[in-house]
Design a protein around this nucleic acid. Sequence first.
DNA 1: ATTAGCACTTAACCACTGAGAGTGCTAAAT
DNA 2: ATTTAGCACTCTCAGTGGTTAAGTGCTAAT
Lengths: 343, 343
Amino acid sequence: MTMLDERTKKILYAVVENYINFPDPVGSRTVAKSYSFGLSPATIRNVMADLEEMGFLLQPHTSAGRVPTDMGYRFYVESLVAESAFLHKEPLRELYKRLATLRDNIDILFSETTKTISTLSHYLGIAMSPKPEVTTLKKIELLKYKDDKIAAILFTDEGMIKNKVISLGAEVTQKDLNRIAGYLNSEFSGHTFDEIRQKVVQEMSKEKIMCDRLISRALKICQEAFYFLYGDLFVSGLSEVLDLPDFTDLNKIKELSRAIEDKHTIIKLLDKLSELDGVQIIIGSENSMDEMKKFSIVVSACKEGDRPIGVVGIIGPTRMNYSKAIYIVDNTARFITRILAER
Amino acid sequence: MTMLDERTKKILYAVVENYINFPDPVGSRTVAKSYSFGLSPATIRNVMADLEEMGFLLQPHTSAGRVPTDMGYRFYVESLVAESAFLHKEPLRELYKRLATLRDNIDILFSETTKTISTLSHYLGIAMSPKPEVTTLKKIELLKYKDDKIAAILFTDEGMIKNKVISLGAEVTQKDLNRIAGYLNSEFSGHTFDEIRQKVVQEMSKEKIMCDRLISRALKICQEAFYFLYGDLFVSGLSEVLDLPDFTDLNKIKELSRAIEDKHTIIKLLDKLSELDGVQIIIGSENSMDEMKKFSIVVSACKEGDRPIGVVGIIGPTRMNYSKAIYIVDNTARFITRILAER
DNA sequence: ATTAGCACTTAACCACTGAGAGTGCTAAAT
DNA sequence: ATTTAGCACTCTCAGTGGTTAAGTGCTAAT
């Protein structure tokens, strides 16, 4: 990381903070006045010119003040994280009370969590249940549904319940289903969905096993049941962000709405992030998705031991109140982690 | 309905259609030219002035052409419906093929349907599963989940599967759960969720019954299970509508996004509409929700016999291609109805 | 090294203008 | 009695120029 002397840093932080609070390019005069450095605007100007040269700031046009670049925000955020500035605040427990009552129904819990996050932050709240790769099966139940159709109910260790209707092509009795379920549970419970998929493919290639009608049927059911299950992504608060001065540009709105409608790419991104610990921050162009290069993401995984059981976070403009965002995300993730652990 | 002579009607329709195709106020010249009435602009002007007086058209400003009012659109749409203009087109079967494969998992079916509708129409696609008032219980299964928690799996005649985790406060064996489920099924299957809720309240007031530990426990489970289940609303295609010239106004976008984020009010509206047959159209100010007074809604219920099993539709600007919208909604609703019936 | 002073740049605002589109009205034509 | 041509009028829109205010970079003095 580039080394900056203390004074230069302070001025950079001042610019960033001022811009976060007031969405106008900030000039040397403003910095000199509001942050009592005991320096004249002229000196500040020199420093700001240096900062611009180094790529931390830029001028929208010659006669305007400066605005942080993504690199500028990054530098600022690193200092926040280093000082854990966001930890010095009150926890939000009060506001989460309602969420605690939803602990047993994880989908609703996550979707409500996004609403809480978005009203708290005035940015987009996001939450995602774990990706199937790491979801471990607790129990599978098979219920006769109608004619040749059965319902497979999958219980995961993370507390999700997924159900899927499967057409078998031939009627099966509930008794048989119970035996099949018993077999599947003994074989697969405790394994991740990914492992199960692989195992199924392996097993199905063995001829001996496939001769057993029951087992072969069981494996086919399994293949169906675990096919194309993915983490659910919840997003809310679009109307919140539309009130921000950052979103007066119609194109930016379009990009954002395209990004959140094409959930797939966001899911992929969050999947990656869900493996890391603590609050993760991605600022503007650091983002690999094109549609997201004008936005920042602040997320944190909820973990049970080492296993991720969900991700919560915020999407907002790069001109985001990172301190507040980190604080909210960190608190929420800890809270969700806690109530899911107590479950 | 106001009586208009044939020529006046034709001119009104011409204005509406032109405006739907080109989003600029339409002038007398344009009408005279493009719709070969054999009339001069001056005559058209007189007629248009009449139409304005009657409230079918209005001028954004003195020197502009005319734009239809909601009443103008209404009159136009009535004529479309009367002639079933939208029926003379090819059915969309090809495009629906993918949807048919999802018939067993109604939530995914509905959410994918909204995507299909929005890409076809370039407006917002909406779909909703039936409200609990009319949803009838097919079967309830109770599964032991963890400690004192059980999972209730509700199968409905409409093909939905809902699950809910319930804390009992005391452990119960799976055997007991099966007996409880048996009791609940014999009592309640075939009834709507609403009826069940009422019945539960009634039963619970009878002292004799509540003495039976099993039954009292069963009723408590039921009360929990059927509490706060509501129809799921799916919406997609926001990025589609943002490309329309009607949505250059940021405020309009805000209103729309507020409306679709506050799903509750839309759900209430669709609930009402789901009881009616055929395509229902609500134009702008006809809408009772304030946030929706600048938009139009075209919906159709999917029914199995008399029972609504879902609603599909479109939300778009009042300057909507109603003919196309009606056509898409009508076709989609019929298609969904059909594949759900074959199920 | 810092700062005061000053010339310079630019966006934002405003008033003004002319072109263009479309109207309503009146008087002529059918 | 309708329809139409003609014309004056109205209003938006895009472009122009001038002014202001903010903020800069540079230079020379501190």
